[in-house]
Design a protein around this nucleic acid. Structure first.
Lengths: 196, 196, 196, 196
DNA sequence: TATGAATGAGTGTTCATTCAT
DNA sequence: TATGAATGAACACTCATTCAT
């Protein structure tokens, strides 16, 4: 009942990943210095190597954690929604919110893959797949059996649309409203998806 | 009829940019070594610095050249098309073909912008704008005046859709058919775009 | 009486400067490789950059430290000397000793100034001024008020004479005796300086 | 009598050396780029290598030519002067004038020697000796046989004095009057030199 | 002779990783 | 565990020299 010592976020791993995310997002993987990550996380440079084998491993671990969070988000919020429109809208809203919160981290992550060691690349792919599956799972329930466009293309369009819209909006320095974007995407895509 | 002196591709600038493209695409800007670019281009390291001031300048120049090529492609092929469906389809096909030919170079370029010098960043932005404008120009003719979704969102969806589809297909190691993808996108997007 | 921890010369900055001095003196600033300095100092190349921002900064810092040492030497040893002959003799002896110890480092330093960054050039000038001032201060007390030759010329002659004699002696591979040189300079210059 | 084609200074060797002097004086040997020398001389980079084996050889050749000029100057102007005061004064004046015309080139040249190849170092030493000999020759006639200070020291003082005075004056941004400097040096040194 | 495009060895600097404390 | 000083491999860029024209 009483917990005299508040351990504020004492999980060092999470602490380091939080710092790392800020640096990776601001500079990209290649330009992010381990020293920056340490400073941002409030630990010494050496400490990072107690929890992670390398800078690459920090990066991949971060992606894994964030991907897991997104997957949980999708599972929790898309569960039990009954209409195609609402699933699509919620899916887009969640992705936009996630994109804004993590500033495109995941979506950009895969550009760095070629520079990572084989094993770490594999871990990235697993994360990517788990996200794709979570998105596809709820969506596929509403796609007609004989739909002439493959699910791979459908999810590609949706994911890409989110990225494209947000990137354009950031470029144009517009205020980003996840709800509004979700409505726009439903407006544009739903008619096509319900055809036949 | 007779062309006594064969200039085998003697434009060194273009030669270097071609080599650079292969290296940038394979490794990304940060991991691309100038030495690799030189080797790929078949020139010595020092030669690169006769034609470009820095590695950064090689990168930006490459983007500029490719952007210009894409813009010309769009202008030539979208000119005089009369139906919305055909414009959309052609637009997507051209972008997919370009994406495949240059392996996402341009679409990935902007990730590196923050690491470039101010002046070079500005040059990137100009290139980006010229592409956006070329895409928007022909498309906007078919969008109803009171369309409830902004052009920025529409183009974001189209561009993003292209990227998303192609990335998914590459990931799944599928054969990519630009024509088929263009048809899929028209199928999914056109109904939404012609509403009201 | 007991000094449990022996700090073998642990001031890394001084250690590096000592190594740097040997290399700069032997090769000159431009031809001195940072790698050589590191090796001479017994540290790794990267270590130098923990203590100095650049090779240029190593050089200027070295000059500053040596100039400071020379100024202290002059202040300590010229203080309270009452005769012109002794001041002149001591001044020359100290400069010759310093020249031999540091092999003309300071006197050659200013040749490199144009190649240094503005701010570092300024630091060199400050060092040069502090030496000039220390020399002039004690000497000027013995120069008649209406002396027809300016102090700038007098100090120029003395400094130059030291350099000239030592260079000639080194060139001729003679053994250099600071005391003897000081006496010679007094013999040659004092009559002229006490005229009128 | 008529010389229709004026060959302005068509001796390419001399042309190159003139350009080289300006660059060496402005930047020092190490920082002087062959490209700069070529540009300054108005020839192509490759042309320099038709007349000189290397950048080092350009430098040493330049010193040799200038040293020869100085030696001729001394021989011509000191010849037949009968008084010690006038010899000393002329010697100093000629050296100051030479120093100003060539901006300390020769006097700084020997600092670069360690970076040169053995054979070129030897050529530098020969030049240095020829100057020293020319200076000493006329001066020694007026030094008493049993003078307690060696000629090496005397010439060192004179040469050094010239350098020291000019350097101080340049540093202080004073106008430099070779005649006045010569008088000052005579004033300061002659009494000491005529002792006993 | 003269040119200047091309070369590639050489160097200052950065930064991921280690390890003594 | 935690630290941060030390390391040295790696890389962008320069420039003396060469050589095809």
């Amino acid at each position: 009942m009483n917990d005299p010592v508040i351990t504020p976020n004492t999980d060092k791993r999470a602490l380091i990943l939080d710092g790392a995310e800020r640096v990776f997002v601001a500079r990209g993987f290649a330009a992010a210095r381990v020293e920056d990550i340490a400073e941002e996380a409030g630990v010494a440079k050496g400490t990072i190597y107690l929890y992670f084998a390398s800078k690459q491993e920090v990066f991949v671990s971060l992606i894994e954690v964030r991907a897991q969070e997104l997957v949980l988000s999708l599972q929790n919020q898309l569960f039990e929604i009954q209409s195609a429109a609402l699933v699509l809208k919620s899916l887009v809203r969640i992705k936009v919110e996630f994109y804004l919160k993590h500033l495109g981290l995941i979506d950009q992550a895969f550009q760095w893959a070629p520079q990572l060691e084989q094993e770490l690349q594999a871990r990235l792919i697993v994360s990517r797949s788990s996200i794709a599956e979570a998105s596809t799972h709820h969506l596929s329930k509403f796609i007609p059996a004989a739909f002439p466009v493959s699910m791979l293309v459908v999810t590609g369009v949706i994911d890409g649309a989110v990225n494209g819209i947000v990137l354009n909006a950031i470029e144009a320095q517009e205020v980003i409203d996840a709800e509004k974007i979700a409505e726009d995407v439903v407006f544009l895509l739903l008619p096509g998806m319900l055809q036949r």
